[in-house]
Design a binder for these strands. Structure first.
Lengths: 205, 205
DNA sequence: CCGACAATTAACAATATTGTTAATCTATAT
DNA sequence: ATATAGATTAACAATATTGTTAATTGTCGG
């Protein structure tokens, strides 16, 4: 009489993740998730009660992932310009590991007030950590005259803009599900290099 | 008796535009459009037959608008750097006139293969016009050594990334429907200046 | 093997959603 | 004023979608 945490629950969660990521909350039918998971659709309610519960499990995981891309990006120990370079690259690569995440999160956040508040509640702490770090670094360099005066928040938005929109564009052009061909890979490599370049130049006095 | 029949068809279209822009195709119920328009929901089928017909009317209009922001941006007659500055500003302002459009178009394009093909079919011609113009300009400047070698497509994506994501972020933070306060306006002005700055610096040798 | 209980299924139920239809109303030309 | 055609409405219909339930199956410790 014990927990036989079947893989059914995990199978459903994985299927839900796939379908929700592609079609969003309102575009997804629970029957399609069940079909994708290969289980009776009652199982989905048995384990998660409602569509919304299931969605929240997926959303919270992906939102965490989306924000962690920022946190992880700003935790190396390097000279200033290399550090910034590393930040851009790390952020880019983190998104690359889950390339559909930005569009998924932004879509729900724009469409759903609760999700918007949820994200904003997480963004503030996440951002303030990063912004404080950045602020110290930037002040020093501005004092030394090695970079132009810039607000940390602007630098952050610039990085996010370039990296995030690269992957949204990629999502329009090629199908992440079918693996990537050389052209796709080259596009991303090229854009990563470009983004680092643009950010570093934006700092020049 | 009383005159005049306010054009019901236009009323419905306007309501559809509003709701579709906020909630996307799958998130919108035709009954909500009817309610928003203040008409019996049968009218919506009387004039447009199906939800999809109605949606397509809205989508095609907005897709055109989205792309026109690029075309319009590249049609001034100024010295190189001022021209680029003008491009970024015009593109930014064009989006500002319809700030929800980028997210609306991108959302449907990512989620719906037909809409994706529709957009890609329009993007290619629109882009090639702009890219050819840009190519001529850029070549001259590179030859003169006044800018760093850069591909027109990269410049274009950089401009689009910075401008588009500015408004997506804005859409998350403030409610475009309730008019904007000073803080909102300042944010946008500040970001416009920042984006011009980043783009111009990205061109430096 | 049995009993308990979790897992699974089919069948049902309730509501939402899109779409249709037939009747009614309204404006306008004759 | 009447006929006509288009506009509008309520009422209906069909299907989709989410969720529930009761019965069945499977597992495992005793």
């Amino acid at each position: 009489m014990e927990i036989k945490n079947t893989n059914t629950e995990q199978t459903i969660l994985a299927a839900a993740e796939k379908v929700f990521m592609d079609k969003g909350y309102s575009g997804t039918k629970t029957t399609e998730i069940a079909k994708e998971a290969g289980v009776n659709h009652a199982m989905l309610h048995y384990y998660f009660r409602t569509k919304e519960n299931l969605f929240n499990r997926v959303f919270e995981k992906k939102a965490e992932l989306f924000l962690s891309a920022f946190k992880d990006a700003f935790s190396s120990d390097l000279p200033f310009f290399e550090k910034i370079k590393k930040c851009v690259e790390t952020h880019f690569d983190k998104i690359g590991e889950n390339p559909k995440t930005p569009m998924f999160v932004l879509r729900e956040v724009v469409v759903n007030k609760e999700k918007r508040d949820f994200i904003l509640g997480k963004v503030i702490p996440a951002a303030s950590f990063v912004l404080e770090e950045l602020d110290k670094l930037i002040r020093e360099e501005i004092a030394k005259g090695t970079i132009t005066p810039i607000k940390p928040i602007d630098l952050l938005i610039n990085i996010a803009s370039l990296n995030v929109l690269t992957f949204i564009a990629a999502q329009v052009y090629f199908d992440f599900d079918k693996g990537m061909n050389d052209e796709n890979r080259n596009f991303l490599l090229h854009r990563k290099k470009n983004n680092v370049d643009v950010i570093l130049k934006s700092l020049q006095p």
